[in-house]
């Protein structure tokens, strides 16, 4: 029962608002329809210009793919959004009011931005279950965490998520023993346990089998609408299978943006990808 209710909640079923009552709260103002604004963001490291006047806006519920050759600034862009890197110039806003350049990584995560790293980053010594327990949305201050106990409702939510990402059999195994693809799934599951409004996914299908990739595409498509997603990916077949709108980065700024076919046929994009 709980599993079914939970799955439909994530998929935007009728019980969704009951299970995720806080999705619309938390000081996030998306009244203008956009959840993320980057404006003229510039970042340089030791003279290397990683981002140059980058401007980008993501709408609520959108699934956006970001592509671009190596060194185009995709990961740096995610670093700026999640507070890991401070921009030299420009602004980054979450909704209308939350200035991301002033918050720490933890504050940004609590505001509702989840991030999956390029290399799967999970707690290898902890069990799969514990990985999800730690990621789960909760009061994450020290004292609350010291006295925290899992309620049966939370236990059910974790169990449902384990079913969803097909890791229920491995719940008690150390996460380090999972296969690469399973680790990717575990990290995505951890992100979802945080109940973020915006998910940043850096190469989520790298190292996955075709079947796993296909299931990941289905998962992302089912999340769009309920969450906003930004997916950075090299796998063009995967991009084609999920993309509605694609942004192409090149040398730290936006080269092209639009529906997948349009971008694919853009001569400048072809030049960047094939010209090297």
């Amino acid at each position: 029962m709980t599993t079914i209710a939970f799955t439909s909640a994530l998929d935007g079923g009728p019980s969704g608002d009951a299970a995720f009552g806080h999705v619309s709260s938390g000081g996030l103002d998306t009244s203008h329809g956009a959840i993320l604004y980057l404006e003229n963001v510039s970042v340089s490291f030791d003279g290397f210009q990683a981002l140059k006047d980058l401007s980008l806006s993501i709408d609520v519920g959108e699934l956006r793919c970001v592509i671009g050759p190596n060194g185009a600034g995709k990961t740096t862009m995610m670093d700026v959004i999640t507070g890991k890197t401070r921009p030299d110039a420009g602004s980054a806003f979450f909704g209308q009011t939350i200035d991301l350049t002033r918050l720490t990584e933890a504050e940004i995560a609590q505001a509702g931005i989840g991030r999956k790293f390029q290399k799967p980053t999970i707690f290898e010594q902890h069990s799969v279950f514990e990985n999800l327990e730690l990621a789960m949305k909760a009061d994450k201050r020290v004292r609350r965490t010291l006295f925290a106990r899992l309620s049966s409702e939370e236990r059910d939510r974790i169990a449902a998520m384990l079913e969803r990402v097909r890791l229920a059999e491995s719940a008690d195994r150390p996460a380090g023993l999972l296969s690469h693809g399973q680790k990717q799934w575990l990290e995505i599951a951890m992100l979802l346990m945080q109940e973020p409004k915006l998910l940043l996914l850096d190469e989520p299908v790298a190292g996955m089998s075709d079947e796993e990739t296909e299931r990941t595409a289905d998962l992302f498509l089912s999340l769009a609408g309920k969450h906003s997603l930004v997916v950075v990916e090299h796998d063009m077949a995967f991009v084609a299978s999920i993309a509605r709108k694609v942004t192409v980065l090149h040398e730290g700024s936006v080269l092209a943006e639009g529906p997948h076919e349009q971008v694919q046929n853009d001569p400048r994009v072809i030049e960047v990808y094939l010209g090297r």
Partner: peptide
């Protein structure tokens, strides 16, 4: 223990490490 093994992931989970 998670901080010991992957501090960055802990921060991105919303914990002020």
């Amino acid at each position: 223990a998670a901080i010991r093994d992957a501090e960055q992931r802990v921060m991105f989970c919303g914990y002020d490490t």
